[in-house]
Design a protein around this nucleic acid. Structure first.
Length: 394
DNA sequence: TACTCGTGGCC
DNA sequence: TGGCCAAGAGT
């Protein structure tokens, strides 16, 4: 039951909704105020928006809707086609799970989204946030929609000093007290807009305290570096505003990001096709297409050795006389490690390689962009392109 | 609970 | 330049 019983909470909730009616962002997947959105559009956009900024999502969302206008179109596609459209967006398990969710919805629900948070929560890739978003945005139900924006607002609003992620249950209680009985979807999206434009994350400055005369709230394209409390509809109701809002929410310290290293080979045959390998469907870059690469080993050792299976294709390529090692390496930063890849070009006659594994295939160099290549491999392609484009001539 | 899992933008 | 951050979910 809503615990939105105090005057402070009901007044604050009403102020958030009133702010939304004037200042809300217009977004392709968003319904008008007081209206419901198509649940398929909500699912598609919310999955894409997981850990991803709005401006990055927009072109992908448009491309998906153009290719898969309805849930059944997505469900009947191949996973590889979904991954190809998703390439570059990152967190590829989202694409695999989205596709699986579409299949489950067609198979088990006749293509009709269940109006049931627990049932939604069981769909692949649908967690607490996305299930609540579907309930609120597509079904008009009162649900507790809590993303990183809303967590930040709640921590400041409630003056919650417990560090994340331990603070989540506390924050959820604050949200439950604040969420109105009607227009819960507009309320949540209002908070996300406020979190994006007003109650922004603090950009910490190194060294000591900043001095008095700062630049005034010159709001650039993206987020502002400090919260703009004077613009916030939560106003004086916010506990954090009376202290140091930028210091909230507190966060547990992060573990350092290790360095890994490996070697990748761009193998070109006599007809200017290159060799590609599809990764296994789980784990890092699961289901995506790569140039043949060694394992990516911890690079902290003095004597590096990239894990290359003795009888593997890569081991054979390592002995090929035409190997050309490029000067520049590819650097790519993943969430939890930094990767340095040595890049080699190997020019072969296709018959030299013998039989290939089922996950390997040849592709004309010019058709790379049609494949599900992750960004790290696009960097490799860009590094090699000046050389291969010359050779492939005309 | 604490990892794993991409990518791009910002200061 | 490098660390932080983003409409989180799975294990």
């Amino acid at each position: 039951m809503p615990k939105n019983s105090t005057k402070k909470n009901s007044d604050a909730g009403a102020a958030v909704l009133a702010w939304y009616d004037v200042h809300r962002r217009i977004l392709p997947w968003r319904a008008h105020p007081n209206a419901l959105a198509d649940p398929y559009h909500v699912l598609l956009s919310e999955v894409m928006l997981q850990q991803t900024v709005v401006e990055t999502v927009k072109p992908y969302y448009a491309a998906f809707l153009a290719r898969f206008p309805r849930l059944e179109d997505l469900a009947s596609a191949s996973q590889d086609e979904v991954l190809r459209l998703w390439a570059g967006l990152g967190y590829y398990a989202r694409a695999r799970n989205l596709h699986r969710a579409a299949v489950v919805l067609m198979r088990d629900y006749g293509g009709v989204f269940p109006d049931d948070e627990a049932a939604l929560r069981k769909l692949p890739g649908v967690g607490a946030y996305t299930a609540a978003a579907l309930m609120a945005f597509a079904f008009g139900k009162r649900a507790l929609v809590m993303d990183a924006n809303i967590e930040r607002i709640l921590a400041r609003f409630g003056g919650i000093e417990t560090p994340l992620p331990a603070a989540k249950s506390e924050l959820r209680a604050v949200l439950d007290a604040l969420t109105p009985a009607v227009r819960a979807g507009d309320f949540a999206q209002s908070l996300m807009d406020i979190g994006n434009a007003i109650c922004t994350p603090s950009r910490k400055k190194k060294g000591g305290k900043k001095k008095g005369g700062q630049k005034k709230g010159g709001q650039k394209k993206g987020a502002v570096s400090q919260p703009q409390c004077a613009l916030c509809p939560l106003g004086d109701w916010c506990v954090g505003r009376h202290g140091d809002p930028a210091s909230l929410p507190r966060k547990a310290p992060k573990s350092p990001r290790p360095i890994r290293e490996g070697v990748v080979m761009v193998v070109r045959d006599e007809s200017a096709e290159v060799l590609l390998v599809r990764r296994s469907p789980h784990g890092l870059l699961g289901g995506m297409v790569m140039f043949p690469t060694s394992g990516w080993a911890d690079g902290s050792r003095q004597q590096r050795h990239y894990p290359i299976a003795p009888d593997s294709l890569l081991a054979r390529l390592t002995k090929h006389p035409s190997r050309q090692k490029l000067e520049a390496k590819v650097k790519h930063i993943f969430t939890h490690f930094t990767l340095y890849l040595e890049v080699e070009i190997v020019r072969v006659q296709r018959q030299e390689l013998g039989d290939l594994d089922a996950d390997a295939f040849w592709l004309p160099w010019g058709q790379l962009s049609d494949e599900a290549l992750p960004s790290v491999m696009m960097k490799v392609a860009a590094l090699v392109a000046p050389v291969l484009n010359d050779e492939n001539g005309a």
